[in-house]
């Protein structure tokens, strides 16, 4: 990249390593922060009565925004609040800014009084609205997303018919898969992989957790997931699974 072939070699090794270490630290710090904020989005979303898809859209908007922007420039909690507001509009589950502010306030300052309807409150509301506009501009108005949810539903139904009833009913695979899918939005998985692949990977991990074996496709001995998605490889599944596990270790680290 430096132009000539050997000219780049004079940079001391140690410095690059240091820089790398610094970058890795920064990335880990940001990842932890985004984890915390998406947890805020999800908890506030549940308190606001949002369904899973609007919550997923809010997380997606949030992650996409900070993929393209620096954390130093914007307050992540404000961005999260606007993401919730925007997701409500996109997914037709309309929310009032007032409710979002009250729920967020209660989340960030547990045990405190509700906010007065004073000028500060109106400023806060204007900030959410302005931030929403900024986000729309930054994301180029591309805020309708496909989510893995409908695929997961479809896969779960097919698998249920496919497997014997006892091994299916003995274990809460479906509930575990949904939980994994919801938690996957704590990270940027949703931006990196195809929705079908994410749906299959959470199902794969849920099956593994309970040691449930899926009978392979009789004729070609194809693994079950290949029937659902032609272009999926085992490597992709394992990548997604390891990122999921990383998210869970982050969870124990933070709380």
């Amino acid at each position: 990249m430096e132009g000539g072939g050997s000219s780049s070699s004079w940079v001391p090794e140690s410095r690059t390593l240091e820089e790398e270490q610094e970058n890795a630290d920064k990335a880990a710090r940001e990842m932890r922060l985004h984890f915390k904020i998406t947890r805020f989005i999800m908890e506030a979303g549940v308190k606001l009565g949002m369904q899973s898809v609007p919550i997923a859209t809010a997380c997606m908007v949030y992650h996409k925004f900070f993929r393209d922007t620096s954390l130093d420039a914007y307050d992540p909690y404000l961005v999260a609040m606007s993401a919730i507001y925007l997701a409500g509009k996109v997914e037709e589950q309309h929310l009032r800014t007032r409710d979002i502010i009250n729920v967020s306030h209660r989340y960030l300052h547990p045990g405190s009084e509700t906010l007065e309807l004073d000028s500060h409150f109106w400023e806060l509301r204007d900030s959410i609205v302005q931030c929403e506009l900024l986000m729309l501009r930054l994301l180029n108005f591309q805020v309708s997303f496909q989510h893995p949810h409908k695929y997961l539903l479809h896969y779960l139904l097919s698998l249920k018919h496919w497997m014997n009833r006892h091994s299916w009913e003995r274990t809460p695979v479906a509930a575990a898969a949904w939980a994994l899918l919801r938690d996957s939005y704590h990270g940027t998985l949703c931006l990196q992989y195809k929705v079908q692949h994410v749906a299959i990977a959470v199902l794969y991990l849920a099956l593994q957790c309970y040691g449930v074996e899926v009978p392979a496709h009789a004729a070609g001995e194809r693994p079950w997931w290949q029937v659902f998605s032609e272009d999926l490889t085992e490597q992709i599944i394992l990548d997604i699974v390891s990122k999921l596990i990383q998210l869970y270790s982050l969870d124990t680290e933070i709380s």
Binding site: D75, H120, C131
Partner: peptide
Amino acid sequence: NVRQVASEAF
């Protein structure tokens, strides 16, 4: 806090 960070961000 939230008010402050929000209006600062604004």
